[in-house]
């Protein structure tokens, strides 16, 4: 199926209600081909509900979704083949071995004789030596990796990762994110939800921040950080500096150091010029950039 140039995901005014409770409230955003998009938000923000609507586990109350131009409600036969889904909760397949599970899953996605791909994924995700084991014999991290292998067995164009690293140790998280980046470099579009904001910051090209079912903001990760956070500049002086420092950006002053908080539009050079300090007395300058976590807290705080 040729989907080149088409938007991997387009959501318009999506609403999902459970009885009187509105889990998703008129959410709209669009993904670009090949990007990693992070859907962030506290628990209960509506992230899983959005993904559930995309994979037809839930029916939207109103609004419209498109996966490469196809509506999952109207053309699920296309959207399902194009999408790989990693659910938040682990699945226990009882009777079957890991390899059997992948063979069946491959068949569900219309692919028979897919051993080569299955073996590649088993090896790439470190499951090869466990391929004859049943799910219950796997550790939590291995179960997560199995979910990812299942989602990739049919080589989807869009990968939906709902908290793929929940309960996974640091080392494995890092290797999974490396793999996600590799998939992205191969041209796969990826939508992920995660609570690890530091990792989302380094991984996601763009992010959307959800709160109480509302999409509060969406944009390129770096731009959002710059827009919503400030830079901290620590200036260390050689010995005790008795000079008066007058700057609107001065936050804190001690004997041999001063802390400034500057907006992203203001350069460090401008700050130094502005405080009219003898440059020879400056021993060191340390700059702390804003983080996605700060931007996240800022956005949530604005709407509370």
């Amino acid at each position: 199926m040729d989907v080149s140039g088409k938007s991997p995901l387009k959501i318009e005014k999506l609403v999902k209600k459970y009885g009187n409770f509105t889990a998703v409230n008129e959410v709209s955003f669009e993904m670009k081909p090949g990007e990693i998009f992070g859907l962030l938000g506290p628990n209960g923000a509506g992230k899983t509900s959005i993904i559930s609507c995309l994979v037809t586990l839930q029916e939207p109350t109103s609004g419209h979704c498109e996966i490469f131009g196809y509506d999952p409600k109207v053309n699920p036969e296309y959207t399902k083949v194009l999408t790989g889904f990693v659910p938040q909760e682990l699945i226990n397949h009882g009777f079957f071995s890991i390899e059997e599970i992948l063979v069946f899953h491959s068949g569900f996605y219309q692919r028979w004789h897919n051993k080569e791909r299955i073996h590649y994924l088993l090896k790439r995700l470190g499951l090869w030596e466990h391929k004859d084991k049943k799910v219950k014999a796997l550790s939590g991290g291995m179960k997560r990796r199995l979910l990812i292998a299942k989602a990739l067995v049919h080589e989807p164009k869009l990968l939906l990762l709902d908290e793929p690293t929940a309960g996974v140790d640091i080392e494995l998280r890092a290797s999974l994110w490396d793999f996600v980046q590799e998939l992205s470099q191969d041209g796969m579009s990826i939508l992920l939800t995660t609570h690890y904001l530091e990792e989302a910051e380094s991984l996601c090209d763009r992010v959307g921040i959800l709160q109480n079912g509302n999409l509060r903001t969406v944009g390129p990760t770096r731009e959002l950080i710059e827009k919503l956070t400030e830079r901290k500049v620590h200036v260390f002086f050689d010995g005790v500096c008795n000079e008066e420092i007058s700057s609107p950006y001065l936050r804190n002053r001690e004997d041999n150091q001063a802390e400034f908080v500057i907006p992203h539009g203001v350069g460090v050079g401008d700050l130094i010029a502005d405080i009219q300090c003898n440059v020879h007395k400056i021993l060191d300058i340390k700059i702390e950039e804003g983080s996605l976590e700060e931007a996240f807290v800022h956005v949530l705080g604005e709407h509370q």
Binding site: V55, T56, P76, E77, F85, P87, I91, N92, F108, Y109
Partner: peptide, 18 residues
């Protein structure tokens, strides 16, 4: 029923199985 417990039904629903 075992699919409801284990989560297989979610797999069936999200795959191209009609």
């Amino acid at each position: 029923v075992s699919g409801k417990f284990g989560g297989d039904l979610e797999d069936w629903r999200t795959s191209p199985l009609t």
